[in-house]
């Protein structure tokens, strides 16, 4: 039995006929759409490498069946930059060396972007650490990740202040 689904992936509508309902969003992105920026670290929701945004919320794409997300609006790491212009979070990750091997990085960045949209952590480093704890980094780049988020948050706070002034 096949299932027709349509998704918006990084702003573009994509229609598929899924021949297998077992396909997760992660495997759909990686193996069927060749959007391999999103990584598979554990495939069981225990590492965060597969983090993407669905309708603006960060989730583990390894534990999401594609067929159940018909109609979803998906943002992956490939859709974050505007051409050569990096998203501020991407630039901050480079500046603060928020990664080493880079494998968990797409998930970390999507998680950090999602976290800022959730607006639960603000500029409190302790909250940021807690809210980013769903993304494991075996290289141990956590300090740089927190610094990167703090920088982007500071930029956003400043912009808000300018607007309200």
């Amino acid at each position: 039995m096949t299932h027709s689904i349509s998704l918006t992936v990084n702003g573009a509508r994509r229609d598929f006929v899924l021949d297998d309902p077992r396909v997760t969003l992660l495997d759909l992105l990686r193996e069927r759409l060749q959007l391999t920026g999103t990584k598979k670290g554990c495939d069981r929701g225990q590492c965060g490498a597969c983090t993407i945004l669905i309708d603006g919320k960060r989730i583990n794409s390894c534990l999401a069946l594609a067929v159940s997300h018909d109609g979803a609006d998906i943002l992956t790491i490939e859709g974050v930059a505007r051409g050569d212009q990096l998203h501020p979070m991407q630039a901050a990750f480079i500046a603060h060396d928020g990664f080493q091997c880079g494998f968990c990085t797409p998930g970390q960045i999507m998680s950090a972007i999602g976290m800022m949209q959730e607006a639960q952590a603000g500029n409190d480093p302790e909250r940021i650490r807690e809210c980013m704890s769903g993304n494991l980094c075996r290289c141990g780049a956590y300090a740089g990740i927190v610094d990167a988020v703090l920088e982007v948050q500071a930029g956003q706070d400043e912009a808000k202040q300018r607007l309200s002034a």
Binding site: G45, G114, G134
Partner: peptide
């Protein structure tokens, strides 16, 4: 409980 990603879902 769990992680922010899992709590979102």
């Amino acid at each position: 409980g769990a992680s922010a990603q899992l709590r979102n879902a």
